[in-house]
Design a protein around this nucleic acid. Structure first.
Lengths: 115, 115
DNA sequence: CAGTATCCTGCCTGATACTG
DNA sequence: CAGTATCAGGCAGGATACTG
């Protein structure tokens, strides 16, 4: 049924790691620089952001462009493949918005039963 | 932008842990028993299956029903909330099918560049 | 500005053995 | 059948300090 050929690791379906989904959103409308990404992603450390970015680049979801000039700049931009992830991502967000309350309620009820 | 009120932990959007998505699929058409779930989920241990099932129950995605009889049986079934997850889940699967090859290619290209 | 280098912790996942 | 108990390994995620 679920072939072992389908390792969850390869599956960006869960939209990668903790930050991948948010990064895609941040790059949705325009390319961004490293520092620009750190703003909306409150709390992310440079190391973790770099890690996520590198993984996404390796997987062909984004491109990395170094702009040498007066001040160093690195631009990150969605590839067509990365952009295509917006579809399932939107589906996920739509679900979340629609069922968020039910989810919270269910969890609270569940917790009250088990501790 | 991404409020801290939105902890990834609460977000079954990434469809929970490693097995949650598959379990939902397994329960899509009918309720199943513990042992029935272990078959398609090749390799899952009793402990991990129990864990996933308990989490899903706590979150209101499935119900657990004990059938006392000649042989003990426990039925797991999707709740409406759990069933609603099939929509984004299908969106994710559709994306995966469509872009699987591109993904593999991109990753291979990415790996050949960085090692 | 855009990262690297180190160290550390918790969680996820699993193997193995045992129970009502 | 449907779990529980215990132990162990690995990796993601993060804190902190430093660099070209």
């Amino acid at each position: 049924m679920f072939d072992t050929v389908c390792p969850t690791d390869l599956m960006p379906i869960r939209v990668g790691d903790k930050w991948t989904g948010m990064i895609i959103r941040c790059l949705e409308h325009a390319p961004r620089r490293f520092s620009e990404l750190r703003v909306p992603l409150r709390g992310i450390t440079a190391k973790v952001l770099t890690q996520s970015l590198r993984t996404m680049e390796r997987d062909g979801l984004i491109t990395r462009t170094v702009v040498t000039g007066p001040a160093r700049q690195v631009h990150y931009e969605l590839t067509p493949l990365g952009r295509s992830l917006l579809v399932p991502l939107n589906a996920m967000c739509a679900w979340a918005e629609e069922h968020w309350d039910a989810l919270i309620d269910a969890r609270e009820a569940g917790l009250s039963r088990t501790g």
